[in-house]
Write a protein that binds this DNA or RNA. Structure first.
Lengths: 189, 189
DNA sequence: CGGCTGATGTGGACAGTGACCACATACGCT
DNA sequence: AGCGTATGTGGTCACTGTCCACATCAGCCG
């Protein structure tokens, strides 16, 4: 094999490896060294692309938000935007649970409004606003912002419940119906 | 000072120290060794009281749920149960944000339904059901479970939004009104 | 075409961590 | 009083994140 000295796209490869690790072992402490090994590069190479371990996680979070944004944009184009959004989000939450957990634990990162995370987060919220407007028609800015925030809360809450609800909840039909809740909020019900 | 060989209540002291650390530096990786130092005990003493580092975190999560349970029980006794619950929860979320984050990140622990965490979680949910019934009167089990789950979702969602909402959200009045949402869910609206 | 400069990757080192081991100490019961 | 066991200690290991000086390469300017 022709292992060149310069990897060529280490940054991308590292992020991919990180997501892979997250998927495979969700309780992941996510070792930087291990990622480097995985990619076939020396221990310190990652430091040329990230400020440190946190940097990788930050990048992951940002990527998570960007993916959510894409989901929302796709939902906007459908006939029933909220319905599509909710089901896409649920699918994402199911298949990428650890990423979403990272995203939701980010309270400390991205405090700086100019950070990559904050940017991605704002774009996601903007996309959410558009979804709400696609569902409910023309609204004042205040209305659509407020409703979008409500929808976001529902998505977060129901997802959290689904991943670690109480015992009784896991029997069929007790988890709240995210779709109807979200729709009623979006429509100003 | 009379440092005895046996601490006497190491377990409690360690948990207290952990909560302290969590409060003081929220982005805490929570080092077991550091906790031991803090309490003035050798590196390995904690292993007599916890299976390992995760054990401490598990204990913290369980304690978090127990505290929430107390909140809910107190709310039940008031004239407006949901209102009290929501405001108590908000206060808890504000003052103990890192603990709540830990609690919400627990998806991997407490999978075992006999674990301390699962027990505490179930008690919290039961207390929530009682709150809902105090607000809405007699209900079928299915109804109250379902509504309690909805309230839980709202609490989680709005809290998450409050800790890391998008930029636009942080201006006044855009965060959804948890109280009215929760009340309308509890009442079957 | 050739050499220089900066970006990228390497090897070595250090402190800090979680976890295990064997051993020391003290508490509580008989 | 004496013994068994719960509790605490010191030593050690593998591993991690991060920094340092140095090696290698890519692309540009002459």
């Amino acid at each position: 094999m022709t292992r060149r000295y310069h990897h060529g796209s280490l940054r991308t490869a590292l992020i991919a490896a990180a997501r892979e690790k997250l998927r495979l072992s969700p309780a992941a402490p996510l070792s930087l060294r291990e990622l480097a090994r995985e990619v076939g590069v020396s221990t310190n190479a990652p430091y040329r692309h990230f400020p440190g371990k946190d940097g990788v996680e930050v990048a992951l979070v940002a990527e998570g938000y960007r993916e959510l944004t894409r989901l929302a944009e796709a939902a906007t184009a459908t006939r029933r935007p909220i319905r599509s959004l909710v089901s896409a989000f649920a699918h994402f939450a199911a298949t990428e649970a650890p990423l979403l957990r990272l995203v939701n634990a980010e309270s400390f990162t991205g405090r700086d409004p100019a950070s990559e995370v904050a940017l991605a987060r704002d774009e996601w919220f903007a996309a959410l606003v558009v979804v709400v407007e696609a569902e409910a028609g023309e609204l004042t800015a205040h209305q659509s912002y407020r409703r979008a925030a409500g929808v976001w809360a529902i998505l977060l809450g129901v997802t959290a419940l689904r991943t670690h609800g109480a015992r009784g909840l896991l029997v069929e039909g007790l988890i709240p119906d995210a779709e109807s809740l979200a729709r009623s909020i979006a429509r100003g019900g």
